[in-house]
Design a protein around this nucleic acid. Structure first.
Lengths: 219, 219
DNA sequence: CGAGTTAGTCAACAAGTTGTCGAAAAGATC
DNA sequence: GATCTTTTCGACAACTTGTTGACTAACTCG
């Protein structure tokens, strides 16, 4: 049973000091403003003042609700990650049913869809990761969870003789999961080069299957 | 003949306004200070003042030599990229000799070594990429160059019947090159999860070969 | 109801950053 | 040594972030 990211623990203490009353509205307004602004411009070009004004409060009042701009984004990321954890559960269930090819595709597809639906947040998360230790830790937990799952799958396939041996399963899992992260990010950001939206899953699934089941013999 | 990144054009106008005299020393001092400081802490925690003081000049004088902190880092990245272009030439030559397996491994190894030797710069480049358009463009050129090379190799192997068909060669190339970028970055940053230094090449080569030569049939 | 705690608000401040301007110092040139 | 160009930096303006202290609205319990 691989670990689920501890979104509860991570959330603790991120928001307002105490909580009650109509202040919930303000908190929500700040979060919504952040998401809205992130669709228009990168995190680095959004100031605390922008967030405060967007939520109809002054800057000092903002600090009553959140300790920093980063904390707002971290809260948003937490929620996205928690939502994505849902698709993971489902993918593992499908996988347990036996058809790995279909299960794998389904899993990657669901995850891609979940993140794609909130591109702006994913992009902000990547940006935050470069400067914010807490964001790095959160992402580490997410990645470790996926790597653990994939490692287990690869080992199971090898054990039942369906997949040939090769590099250590965990090493393969790390590279594959990181490939997905990078390819999907590039696609969200519409970098160049990047895979077209509707090609992403086909290409990733193909490489995964070949990496897991194929041999490395040039003809 | 795939494109080489235009490091010459990109460098233009990045440094000082005019150029001559002993000001070269100062310029070098700034660049060296930047590289030195980047080994100790991330780019976001280095100020123009740090750079100036490190080079023994005042902050306004810094602006005589470079228009911004970003410009300094961009110059450093330019040089690293130009150096890395060397290994690429060599890899293509080895590849042309025929033994793709060895050539591929050699190419990935050389590139990895070139970047690994200046981890701090690579990490700074990644950080800068999230906020600086020019850095993104520079990296785009580098990536497009590699993708073009790899696409050509895959197509050649398919044409001579050594590799089976599958996803479009360019799509495969994009995913593989982006995988390498991400895996290597994680290793440099000692993220968790990440591949241990001495495992990186083995794992990447294995996945590349399976992706290029393998089929996607689960047993 | 009314004194007291609590939640919510913000003007004003402190400290840090970036980038610019204009005047002065240092060097080269004739 | 008068003149032009390069180099240098003190002082300033603009913009951040985060804090403090005082003020208001509301609730609460005797």
């Amino acid at each position: 049973m691989p670990a689920t990211p501890e979104t509860d623990a991570a959330t603790k203490g991120r928001g307002r000091r105490a909580a009650r009353a109509s202040g919930d509205d303000r908190e929500r307004a700040i979060l919504e403003t952040a998401e809205r602004l992130l669709e228009e411009r990168p995190l680095s070009e959004i100031s605390v003042d922008d967030l405060a004004r967007g939520a109809g409060i002054s800057r000092p009042t903002f600090y009553f609700y959140f300790p920093s701009k980063d904390a707002v984004v971290l809260t948003i990321i937490d929620r996205l990650v928690a939502a994505a954890a849902g698709s993971r559960e489902q993918a593992l269930a499908t996988l347990a049913e036996g058809d790995l090819r279909a299960g794998l595709r389904q899993g990657l597809e669901d995850l891609y869809a979940a993140f794609r639906a909130r591109r702006a947040v994913v992009l902000a998360a990547a940006e935050l990761r470069t400067t914010n230790e807490e964001a790095r830790e959160l992402w580490t937990q997410v990645m470790e969870g996926w790597v653990a799952d994939v490692t287990a799958v690869i080992e199971a396939e090898r054990a039942r003789g369906a997949a040939p041996g090769g590099q250590p399963a965990r090493d393969m899992a790390i590279a594959l999961v990181q490939m997905n992260e990078r390819v999907q990010y590039a696609s969200f950001a519409a970098e160049s080069p990047s895979l077209a939206d509707e090609r992403v899953i086909d290409v990733l699934v193909d490489i995964w299957l070949r990496a897991i089941y194929g041999s490395a013999d040039p003809g």
